Amino acid sequence: MITAMNAERIKLTSTRSPYWCVGIVALLAIGVAVLTGATVSGPLAPTPLESAWTALVGLNSFGVLVLMIMAVLAVTSEYRFGTIRTTFQAIPRRSTVLLAKAAVFGVLAFVVTLVLAVVGVVLAKAFSGSSGGIELGDSGVLRQIWGTPVIAALYVLIGLGVGAIVRHTAGAIVIVLIWNLAVESILSILPKVGEHIAPFLPFANGSRFLNGSLDDTGYHWNAYGSLIYFAVFAVVVFVAGILVTDRRDA
């Protein structure tokens, strides 16, 4: 496993796409935090939790999508350029390869988003002053700071799983983006059934963990239940990717 992780680390640092992805995430996180803080004329939201979520919307709504795309590329690029055969010859247990990718890219996503979450909250507070409504010691704000990296790591698992199942870069990226940005929104507003479907939509639960209150009655569980639900979903998608990879030819 250590050898596989070292191999994935070398691949990560020797290709350009991860650098571009991390750069875009940093630009989104810092840029939106500064803009929201500099342009606010009052509290960003009614509560410190929602104020912090608003300040970090560039990171927790869009940056995590870029990291998920990076995870998709980690798998599909190997199929595209044919290097996956060499990888599987060097490490015959294909599950080990995907687990190593999950460890390396998951840790990268966690560390990057943790740093950017702290920087984003501090910058938004600094630019908005006392009017921004962000209290650094508030439990809701702290949940944004540690929760965003957790969500980002789960997005990476989903990206790896979908990439392993689909194999094609364009198709996998379209699936994860349309699913996140369109399909769940459409399902949640369907007449009569939308309100019953919404609590079971995975990405909605991930988002709700960050921006929802702990006693929100619209769901069947509290915000931490939403995190668990989303985590289980991410693991299921990733495991499905492993099973499909084991059963198909490289």
Results as ranks from 00 to 15, higher is better:
Arg94Ile: 10
Arg94Phe: 08
Arg94Pro: 13
Ser95Asp: 15
Thr96Ala: 14
Thr96Phe: 03
Val97Gln: 07
Val97Glu: 05
Leu98Met: 14
Leu99Glu: 09
Ala100Glu: 01
Ala100Arg: 06
Lys101Asn: 13
Lys101Tyr: 12
Lys101Val: 12
Ala102Gly: 07
Ala102His: 04
Ala102Cys: 07
Ala102Val: 02
Ala102Arg: 01
Ala102Tyr: 04
Ala103Cys: 14
Ala103Tyr: 06
Ala103Arg: 05
Ala103Leu: 13
Val104Gln: 03
Val104Tyr: 00
Phe105Pro: 05
Phe105His: 14
Gly106Cys: 09
Leu108Tyr: 00
Phe110His: 10
Phe110Ala: 15
Val111Asn: 08
Val111Ile: 14
Val112Cys: 07
Val112Leu: 02
Thr113Val: 05
Leu114Asn: 05
Leu114Gln: 03
Val115Tyr: 04
Val115Asp: 07
Leu116Pro: 04
Leu116Phe: 00
Ala117His: 12
Val118Trp: 14
Val118Leu: 15
Val119Trp: 03
Gly120Ala: 03
Gly120Leu: 00
Gly120Thr: 02
Val121Lys: 03
Val121Asn: 08
Val121Cys: 09
Val121Ile: 13
Leu123Gln: 06
Ala124Pro: 01
Ala124Ile: 01
Lys125Asp: 11
Ala126Met: 13
Ser128Pro: 05
Ser128Glu: 09
Ser128Arg: 07
Gly129Trp: 01
Ser130Ala: 15
Ser130Pro: 04
Ser131Leu: 14
Ser131Met: 13
Ser131Cys: 00
Ser131Asn: 12
Ser131Lys: 14
Gly132Gln: 06
Gly132Glu: 03
Gly132Leu: 04
Gly132Phe: 00
Gly133Cys: 10
Ile134Val: 01
Ile134Arg: 02
Ile134Gln: 00
Glu135Pro: 02
Glu135Ser: 13
Glu135Leu: 11
Glu135Met: 09
Glu135His: 08
Leu136Cys: 11
Leu136Gln: 09
Leu136Pro: 12
Leu136Gly: 12
Gly137Ile: 00
Gly137Glu: 02
Gly137Ser: 07
Asp138Tyr: 08
Asp138Cys: 10
Ser139Trp: 00
Ser139Cys: 01
Gly140Asn: 08
Gly140Glu: 10
Gly140Ile: 02
Val141Ala: 04
Val141Thr: 11
Leu142Phe: 11
Leu142Asn: 13
Leu142Ile: 13
Leu142Ser: 13
Arg143Trp: 09
Arg143Glu: 12
Arg143Ala: 13
Arg143Lys: 14
Arg143Asp: 11
Gln144Ala: 15
